[in-house]
Amino acid sequence: MTVTSMMSGPGEGTLADEPCGLPRHPVHHSLGTDTWNEQYSRPEGALDAVMLFLSFPDAAPRSAPAEIAADYFPATTDFFLRASYGAFRLDADIGKRWVEMPRPSSAYGIQRDWAPDMRAAYLQDALAALEPEVEFGAYDIVYLVADPDAPGVDSDATKVVNFQQPLKVGDAEVRRVVTLFEGRPPDRNVLAHETGHVFDLPDLYNRPDSGHGDWDTHVGDWDVMGSQFGLAPEPFGWHKWKLGWLDSAHVSCVRAGGTSLHTIQPLGAPLDPGGARGDTRMVVVRTASDEALVLEARTPVGNDVHACTQGVLLYRVRADIASAQGPVEVLDGHPDTGACHGRSVQPELADAPLGAGESYWLADEGIRVEVGDRTAAGGWQVKVIRE
């Protein structure tokens, strides 16, 4: 069995023909919006998941499967319901018992940078043990939970594993699994983060070359794909556009030079079902063939209820940059200050949004963003001046 963290080959199916969209590139989890990679599930309507539990001969589980499942559901279902404005529901069936692996937990070398042959052995044994327990073909997403108290289980190893070729399990084909090695309680929003990869979303954190250092310099607390511990984990508007939860009616596209005025509604607030054309959630300025500047309003609502600052957030998107290489960069509207020290994963970016009366100048692009007053409906007035 061969496994890899990469998927190859673009799929078809137009998502957005808006001039401010970006073309999808053959890099891992590209943020292009013009097509959808059909190798990934679309998060629309309802998808069915199954959570299965693996024990080992060298440890007796201390928790029941239902207790562990309660760490993840319904919280993860609720996260996606809020993020998608109710357009997507994740339903999960929960395994009722522990299924024992044939080898001790220490035999698999479980760790973050897992040796491919050891990881393949783990997955081979896991799926073989589970085949009599479940009909894999009935599910869109498979979560494999290892006994968190087994001595060889490393909580840093949690990740999505993609197969270069779909793996046959009985009559079903399995394309990817989410392997959970979390302790209890697990990292906050870890399952929402990993499930985001199942929908072709990239890692937004910065992984230092040495593995030691600051991981959160690209986006800080903003977006669950940056950090599952973030105070403002609502997915970026760009991610919602890519996934189909927002469409071009919610995007105000700055196509030419001059001055344009916009009113942006808070990203996490419910959509207006009767007035999408007046319900702008993003302002997008195409700055290069593969790059765009995005403006969106973030407030402490929805998944961002614990955010400690609010305002108009600016960030760059690059469709030609792979996952974990910096496809999104938050622009710091207050570079000399920080916020939420002791709670934020990156206090320097926690106060990145611009407030009323503040502005940001992007000299290289010749773009100035000015934030005006709040509207009676809670939106933010912004002016974009493009040379």
Rank of each mutant, 00 (worst) to 15 (best):
A249W: 04
A292Y: 02
E296W: 03
W222P: 00
G302K: 01
C253R: 00
R255I: 13
L295R: 02
A297I: 05
R207T: 14
S227Q: 07
F236E: 05
H306S: 14
T299K: 03
W245Y: 11
R277S: 15
P300E: 14
T217M: 02
L231A: 05
R255D: 11
Y205H: 08
W241E: 01
V198M: 06
D279E: 15
H239Q: 04
A297L: 14
H212Q: 15
G244D: 07
P270M: 12
C253M: 10
L293Q: 05
T263Y: 09
T287S: 10
A288F: 11
A249G: 11
P202L: 02
V219L: 04
S252T: 01
N206P: 00
G213M: 12
A297M: 13
G258R: 08
V219Y: 00
G237N: 01
V254S: 03
T299V: 09
P270L: 03
T280G: 08
G257F: 03
Q265H: 12
D272S: 14
G275T: 11
V254T: 05
A292M: 07
G302A: 11
D247Y: 09
G213Q: 05
L293Y: 02
G226K: 01
L243K: 00
D200A: 11
L293T: 01
V285H: 01
L246V: 10
S227R: 01
F229M: 12
T217I: 15
Y205F: 14
V283M: 03
H250P: 06
Q228H: 12
L295V: 09
V285T: 06
E291Q: 08
S227V: 04
I264L: 15
R255M: 15
G226L: 09
V301T: 15
T217G: 07
Q228A: 12
R286M: 10
A288G: 15
L295P: 02
V254P: 00
G258E: 13
